[in-house]
Design a protein around this nucleic acid. Structure first.
Lengths: 330, 330
DNA sequence: TTGTCTTTTGACAACGTTGTCACTTTGGTC
DNA sequence: GACCAAAGTGACAACGTTGTCAAAAGACAA
């Protein structure tokens, strides 16, 4: 900037004004400054700028996801980015791998870089550590799962209602013995989904049979094994509800291997790419990650714009997509 | 930092030393400083630090992807992140959407934040604009597609060889009329893949029939329509090679709708989640995005560590995964 | 011409850190 | 007890910007 000022024969403050589009610079001078910065390949240094600025904004937000390569998480990421670019804000993204310690380290690294806001898909089970960041003025929004020990803006899927809808669909197709395969109970969404299963059965006065329930399944293989066990045991279920996309895939694999994919009904939580091309197509309760991400980013930027009202809890609805596997009758 | 220094009754330089783990601070003082920074919730400000530091490093890199939500791109992103976290480096990610102008804007935004390095999956067809950044000392590596008008480190898939392998597989299964469905020819990888098809046919002395070739297909729907047209026309192909994952999905949809999925062979470029559960399973030429990302990040960090040797071109091999669709005989 | 008001411009300090270098203390040797 | 080297510590400037405020220049009326 000093070099540009020297070449344009003005003070560096004038260059600063031109670069920031501040008013009160005569057109002639502005042109001279622009020409000089062009000639010297001048690049505005946002880090120095945000250091000096009164608001201290870095025009950067941090996003903590379970895994940036996970389809659900990357869809969130993309819709957050879309809102951010419109405001000239960049996105730092990181994967916590369902590990509270990694989540904290990421947040800490983001905080060191003075991000303006955070969007967190939580892995940790205690977010009181974020009080410090909040006090420092960092905006934050939680997505997909609620924060623990912290009152903050949250955008969630209506997990319980979604599962209930799916289980009701199975009941309406004549099923009474409905198996449930779920993810780690430590994950709030997984607990909510399991809860939906339990509630919906009760509403139809179907007695909960714990032998038809398998929880704490992580990954395709575990789900496949559990499904096989469930279906080859005594009194197997006539329908399955799977609480997460990898579990759905594992269950479908097992059904296929056992030749039961046209006999046992299956509804899964989360949509799966290609689910329509399988035989039968897989009926799912689809989340809307794009809507979740967009909402979260909107709330975050409203906070950054000064909205100090009480924290908001947004619920994004699910949608049932029927494709065949959920319509098999016992 | 000033407050911490005051509370610990030391100079701020001593606090700086403790925070950066520099030697030459007595254990007693270090403890006092640590206690004080704990008590005041002190957060090291990396932006100020990198401004002042002699190397000017921000411990941040920028990654430009076609779309952070695309499975191939997000796999790249994740493997880059894995290398970066080990060095305490954070990743800024952005989507260029196959638009050269967006790519430039992202790079410019990254440059303003003084990233140490860039990993770019290019959309633009002229990268001479990056000369300025390079001169400013920014390291850069290109992934998936080569840079244009710029000599730089590059990590590519062996597209031509991969396609040739797949086409040979079809020929070996008795096919002579092999259709080809490809992406935009402006994308370097798409051009290379088409080239592989042409070459392999020539090696088997099969005359290229342009009526069996459809290029510039973008997205599932276009691919589905083109496939339908190809198969319902006169003298339809007995096998198809699809040059990209969305095209493979579109082609498979068309085959299914026409009831030809067990009659016409299909091999696709890029692996697809669930491809093994379809009927028939889809034979693919799989890329290794994790290896590409890891290699790119390794090269980038070697450059940041001072490696000034000539630019490197890495080729990551593909792998054929046979699942049934590619083994159908005419 | 002078006085007043408005617009344009620039000098300087400050943002939160680290590099440089000089000073003080400590422990050991003669 | 004097001297020295090594270790520990701090004062100050500087990184590239922007906020503040004052000075200069221009516009206009009397």
């Amino acid at each position: 900037m000093r070099d540009v000022a020297a070449l344009a024969k003005v003070s560096i403050k004038t260059v600063s004004r031109v670069v920031n589009g501040e008013p009160g610079v005569s057109p002639a001078l502005a042109r001279r400054v622009l020409a000089a910065s062009e000639r010297l390949d001048y690049r505005h240094n946002m880090t120095a700028s945000s250091l000096r600025r009164s608001d201290g904004r870095s025009a950067t937000i941090g996003v903590v996801l379970e895994d940036v390569a996970n389809p659900f998480a990357s869809a969130l990421h993309r819709s957050i980015e879309d809102v951010a670019v419109k405001r000239g804000v960049l996105v730092l993204a990181g994967s916590s791998d369902e590990d509270g310690e990694r989540e904290r380290r990421l947040v800490s690294a983001f905080a060191s870089r003075r991000v303006d806001g955070l969007i967190i898909q939580p892995s940790s089970h205690d977010h009181s550590y974020l009080l410090t960041e909040r006090r420092a003025g960092t905006a934050m929004v939680f997505v997909d799962r609620p924060p623990a020990f912290l009152d903050a803006d949250t955008v969630l899927t209506d997990n319980t209602a979604g599962v209930k809808r799916g289980v009701r669909h199975l009941v309406e197709h004549g099923h009474r013995r409905i198996g449930y395969l779920g993810d780690m109970r430590t994950i709030a969404t997984a607990a909510d989904r399991h809860q939906g299963y339990v509630e919906e059965l009760a509403e139809h006065e179907i007695k909960l049979d714990e032998r038809l329930v398998r929880l704490d399944l992580r990954g395709i293989e575990k789900a496949e094994a559990a499904t096989t066990e469930l279906l080859t045991g005594p009194e197997p279920p006539t329908a399955l509800f799977t609480g997460q996309n990898l579990i759905t895939i594992g269950a479908f694999r097992a059904l296929r291997r056992l030749g039961l994919h046209r006999k046992v009904a299956l509804i899964g939580f989360d949509d799966i790419l290609l689910a329509d091309l399988l035989e039968p197509g897989i009926t799912v309760i689809a989340q809307d990650p794009a809507a979740i991400g967009r909402t979260a980013a909107d709330v975050l930027f409203r906070r950054l714009d000064g909205d100090r009202s009480a924290s908001e809890q947004h619920i994004v609805l699910t949608r049932m997509i029927t494709r065949g596997s959920g319509e098999i009758r016992p």
